[in-house]
Design a binder for these strands. Structure first.
Lengths: 362, 362
DNA sequence: CTGAAAGCGCTAACAC
DNA sequence: GTGTTAGCGCTTTCAG
């Protein structure tokens, strides 16, 4: 009586039934090495009959490659940027034959740290991360990473030699300001999401994510270039929490001389402006203007549509995956800092104070 | 000269350096079986020194468990439901010590099929899927699934004995209709997302997802209970594509006697209403009313806020993971069909035709 | 309480 | 072109 194979068929079962050795079966199934075409066909047929499925874990163990990449995404992917980025990474990875193991840290460095350890232990071939850190962290050293390739998306960490795919946030922010200035706005409110602050503050926090840093600098440069005096600008740095951001918006609006336009650094801040404006019966694009960074279908569908700096999220994710996979399959690629161009999409959320000065009296 | 271990340290290196056997090292590190406390401490210290990291792939191979679950999510997680569900699953899984391997199919059965095969080959311990199929598919048999547990979220497949976590869509839809009727609406437009149709149609497609089916039935029941004659109802079944849904909305609005309120079956359809209304300078909650299913921060932040049937997405995901993990760790749990209650969140997008009949003359 | 040894399923030298 | 064999790194009987 033949050894009854109880569980699911393995390559040994296939080999036996096909009357060949394991090696031949393997060659037939994985399509490598020299093998007789007829043998291959036969083995494959037998495998099919048996309902054989390769065990990728065993393969991974043997080859030292899991064909899996780890995605460490911070915060909600409830955020209009991160959900698209996630989808982009998953899709691009699959096209290249990789699966993605996903982890969510809540902008929390400790969570990021442990996520990376887990992923490395799971033997991912590489990592795509949205780093939560502003300074060089200790858990992103080649040693901790087991020398696995890594690429950052959305943000850089200056001083770390890591490939990063970001967007031209400085230019985008500049363009946003130029746009509102061209429409006659002179009193500007800036609402900047900044982790690490409690509530909101006028003082610029010392440590900021590279994206935030770039946006601030871009905003500031264009405002200054446009001849807008600091007095005419209100800057609020705000915790990324509805309670904080809404309070910040109210503060902005309740100034003796409130801004005619608010520029927000991300979706969450824009949401707060929308909320508060709604509560106060203020019409966007008329009573108060708004420009934000990152597009979404909702921003487009509103009336008026919200003017945004759109970032090429899908492309960013795709490039990140391509660079990572290139480095996995051919180690030693040079590090690159890639910044993708952004685009201002003007919709109706910025009042034209030139054509309709009655909307805004100084 | 001792065998210089080149690569990363393995448990053998730890054992050697600690002067114990592999078995003892394993016991010390994985904290099982009988082991002397002092020995354990020593081994752990050595492991620490060496920077030893367990290889989870090897563990998985040996134990036959990967501590990984596969998530097969359809469509965009750009969708306000799926992004939150994804996050919910990832978070809940991590809390239970599982990682998640994510796949995105675009409501495409073939993609789903291949995703599941891949996941099974990767030896996931179980599967959470949003099934794209309306009828019983051939790729979800215990055999194809390698007898791994599976739970559906968001939708059921009637006739398939699979644990599913859904929401009370029938009741939610009913409640939505009751709400608009109570506000005096009598002419109702229903915009239903339905895959499989091209463009849009008035004819009800034969095969519908269980969620869609339930929503339609709920809408219809409440309308009929409320004495709304079929003549007063317009039903449009629509491809889930902006071009199609926007055309459908226009059709709805361009009828000789257009509905005073549109009830949409999902976010995408609601987006189309918003878009078209914006283009036509129609004010939501006044010129045209809107109720949709699934909440999002955007729907809440708009002015007026959009009235929605909110579904408990996080809870749904959490329960799905818990049920799945229970079944992984203790196989043979009974299948369950769980439907979570939903909640109507009334905001300002439905005009009150009773208080302000001038908004709507028959 | 600890060690020896087997083996999870697969691939890749190396022989023939 | 095919078979033999040796592991990948780990856990787990089974002895002692």
């Amino acid at each position: 009586m033949p050894k009854a194979s109880t569980g699911k068929p393995t390559i040994v079962d296939v080999a036996e039934k096909a009357g060949v050795s394991r090696a031949t079966a393997s060659r037939a199934l994985s399509n490598y090495g020299r093998i007789n075409a007829a043998t291959q066909l036969h083995v494959r047929r037998v495998a099919e009959e048996l309902g054989y499925r390769p065990n990728e874990v065993a393969k991974a163990m043997r080859r030292g490659k899991t064909k899996t990449i780890g995605l460490v995404i911070v915060a909600d992917f409830t955020n209009a940027f991160f959900d698209r980025a996630t989808k982009g990474v998953v899709d691009a990875a699959r096209e290249l034959g990789y699966q993605v193991l996903i982890t969510n840290t809540n902008e929390d460095l400790a969570a990021e740290r442990s996520a990376i350890i887990t992923l490395i232990e799971k033997q991912v071939d590489g990592l795509i991360v949205v780093p939560a850190a502003t300074a060089i962290p200790d858990h992103l050293t080649p040693d901790q990473l087991d020398n696995k390739p890594i690429v950052f998306i959305d943000r850089r960490i200056d001083g770390l030699q890591v490939t990063s795919i970001t967007t031209e946030d400085f230019q985008g922010a500049e363009e946003a300001v130029r746009h509102v200035l061209s429409l006659g706005h002179k009193r500007l409110g800036f609402l900047i999401a900044a982790s690490g602050v409690a509530g909101f503050t006028q003082e610029r926090p010392p440590l900021l994510l590279s994206t935030v840093e770039d946006r601030i600098n871009g905003f500031a440069k264009a405002a200054s270039d446009g001849g807008i005096k600091p007095k005419m600008q209100t800057w609020l740095y705000c915790e990324d929490l509805p309670s904080a951001s809404e309070a910040a918006v109210m503060r902005l609006l309740d100034q003796p001389k409130p801004p005619s336009v608010i520029l927000t650094s991300n979706n969450d801040m824009a949401l707060a402006v929308l909320k508060v404006a709604g509560n106060r019966q203020l019409t966007i694009g008329k009573d108060i203007s708004l420009v934000t960074i990152d597009d979404s279908q909702w921003l487009e569908a509103m009336s008026p549509g919200i003017t945004v700096v759109a970032r090429p999220v899908e492309e960013l994710s795709r490039i990140a995956v391509e660079k990572l996979v290139a480095n996995i399959e051919e180690p030693g690629q040079p590090e690159e800092q890639i910044a993708l161009p952004v685009e201002l999409v003007a919709r109706g959320s910025v009042a034209n104070l030139i054509l309709r000065p009655e909307l805004w009296m100084e």
